[in-house]
Design a protein around this nucleic acid. Structure first.
Lengths: 230, 230
DNA sequence: CCAAAAGTGTTGACCGTACACCCATGA
DNA sequence: TCATGGGTGTACGGTCAACACTTTTGG
């Protein structure tokens, strides 16, 4: 079947988001092959004959971070003729949300990779800047209607941290009273009996994402909906 | 470069939406090649060496409908190993919104294609049912925040038609007073001095999408936002 | 005791939603 | 004159947005 049709190189590129010290970060690698060897790029790789696109994305993410079973979503396929000057390559882009503290630092070093705060991101090869911009758009969309913030924070986190994450994602100051009200009113945060005193002398209460209650609420028709007006 | 990497067949499949006689429709073709010859499927084709994904989608849409420059958006790439039993094929899915009256009926006949009301859609080959469901989800998302309804209606249309379209998309009855209020308040509809009397004896006023005013409004920070609660 | 971050309530404006009757016309 | 679909306005409740001071504690 289909013998006479053209075949193509298919790549998968991963936009890897993290959050640390109050800023949203991006994991980038220094490219080791031509063309554009030595320049910054997204982590990517070619699709194998015997794996699905999702499997390829997981494989590539694991290669660089050591992580599995993290939040990873396809968001767009890029297929312009000249996007890679060396060859005609179709690239399917995925974005991942990971907890920075949990990834494998040694792997990142091996790959000559680095975490960049979003604001300090260098120019990337090919159409990777476009991909990053699209991924951020998608993240913004997701973060309003799904509790994805938790994917980027450690298991225990404070409300000021949580708010700061949203402020990074939307590049905007939020009112802390309104933010707390709306996030707490969802009932998906579990307040712990511990404080985090690294950020202040008074200390901030730690919370945990109550996944079970979230699932429970979903079945009752609840929809996560943080209102952040554009 | 990249000599040792696997190459793949890449297809593009189009979910083609239309709206006619108060129902949302889907343009499907009867497949002419094995496997699954004779079964209903989406219109698709393989990506050529010398065209981008978007170009392939336009080409394939034009092949079947004769239309160019219509609303056409990529929404997902499908890459499961076994999705096509005959070969390993990556498929990039696009959805199109067209005005049924404007398409080329003879082409559709040549291809053994047919418009199906959404509710009467037959089972499709491979993962095409999944694609259709995903496309509808995407259409619902789009229709809330972008004035895509106009892509499916003739240039001049009545408010009852417009409302009926939204009722089809969201599978729900809407209150006509509220619907009119919200759509008219956007200021992107231009009321014409004509009535359409095909639907009733009284006749309904015809409107036209005021594209220029819409663009104008966008620059002023306006965002289309029809509130249709899930 | 002071600096620095955490935490806490109220009000007004706007928006979404619910709801029922009259109008115009051709048959 | 009647059946059919087209068109119209209001009131209530809930949600969003704006806003400033007190608390805690380590240094």
């Amino acid at each position: 079947m289909y013998q006479h049709s053209d075949k193509h190189l298919v790549a998968v590129d991963c936009i890897i988001f993290g959050f640390e010290k109050g800023s949203l970060k991006l994991l980038l690698v220094k490219r080791k092959i031509e063309p554009c060897c030595g320049e910054w790029s997204l982590m990517g790789g070619f699709l194998f004959e015997n794996e699905s696109l999702d499997e390829a994305a997981s494989r590539i993410l694991k290669q660089l971070t050591g992580l599995e079973n993290v939040y990873l979503r396809q968001f767009h396929a890029y297929g312009e003729m000249q996007r890679d000057p060396a060859a005609r390559v179709i690239s399917v882009a995925y974005f991942a949300l990971i907890k920075i503290r949990e990834h494998d630092y040694t792997l990142v070093q091996e790959y000559d990779a680095r975490w960049f705060p979003f604001a300090e991101k260098p120019a990337l090869i090919f159409d990777h800047d476009t991909m990053v911009a699209a991924a951020l758009d998608r993240l913004r969309l997701e973060a309003k209607t799904h509790p994805v913030g938790f994917e980027l924070l450690p298991e225990k986190f404070t409300l000021p941290q949580f708010q700061s994450l949203y402020e990074c994602i939307y590049q905007r100051k939020l009112d802390n009273r309104n933010f707390r009200k709306s996030i707490l009113s969802t009932g998906i945060l579990e307040k712990l009996d511990e404080k985090d005193r690294t950020g202040s002398k008074k200390g901030a209460w730690l919370y945990r994402f109550d996944k079970n209650n979230y699932r429970e609420l979903l079945t009752k028709g609840f929809r996560f909906n943080l209102t952040i007006s554009e």
